[in-house]
Amino acid sequence: MLNILVIGAGTMGRMHAGSFAKMKCVSLVGIVDTDLNKAAKLADQLDTKAFRTYEEAVQQSLVIDAVSICVPTPVHKEFLLKAADDKKHIICEKPLARTLTDAKEMIMYCSERDVKLFVGHVVRFSPEYIKAKLAVEKGVVGKPAVVRTSRGGKFPVASNDWYTAYDSSGGLVLDLLIHDFDFLRWCFGEVERVYAKSSRGRVYERLEYALVTLRYKSGVIAHVEGSWAHQKFTTKFEIAGTEGIIDYDSSKVVSVLTGQNQSNSGGGAAVPESPLEESSYYRELEHFVHCIKTNDDPVISAADAYKAMEISMAVLESIETGKAVTLNNNVKELI
């Protein structure tokens, strides 16, 4: 049995705690949130304990093998250092940190203390993305050439509205597009340079929109759209190569559509779904639990998470400067 403490009872904390509660080989020992009511509500649902602080949880819980850090990005480091000091293995939501310096320090801190660090790049566990990667590896599209991805929906609502604070969240590019940067690097290798534009500084409404071009060392050209300016969360990708094309659009995958009439004459709303027995989050967390138990290498290493951040930072720099940014690709010491 692996004893896991979830830190943070927000959207991601709920996702993690709910997944762990379902796993037979995991004991969810508690949920930490400075808002104790929030933690208690979730703990009640999942039949576990609620704590206001990490320290209280450590004092009261008998055994904690690992922690899952699901707090806003700028606070990741604080909890990671504490948990690593206590020799707990760490699962941390993406992005690992707000700055590369912090990320590097966090990775080193864990490795020096022999603590495993897993970063939640959940797209690597999403079946549509995995299928596409496997097809590309099999040569279905020939040599990949032009790739497009899209991700986004409404502006996120979270505690203290922390997403609106760019200095805290890194905005759309660091928080959301990092998924696509990681997936694309997983499929097409290292990035040579990036060029990007975003709505930041152009509009003051509660929205963000960014368009990014990435050139890979392999020659592949990728275009990444990120949006907190749309109405409904959607992900899309298209991989075009010399021999074929793979495309996916989440808005067109509707395997269950429930329509509810408002009156006898019809009308009303329809809710689309694409249900799977296990969510991508469940698969991801189950994989991390497996790696803790077996010592296997994870599908996404801490160094991969760092690399994805490095790409995000280059994109932010390009948006800031209006220039193309070439990546230096010199983080070998981390691997």
């Binding site: 497009r148 368009l211 050209i221 075009a240 074929g244």
Partner: peptide, 24 residues
């Protein structure tokens, strides 16, 4: 046969265009 443009317009709008001959 592959092209990805990013444009800045004089009305503060930015745009991208994928003009590739990428349909197989």
């Amino acid at each position: 046969d592959s092209g990805m443009l990013t444009m800045e317009f004089d009305n503060n709008v930015f745009a991208t265009l994928d003009c590739s001959w990428s349909r197989n």
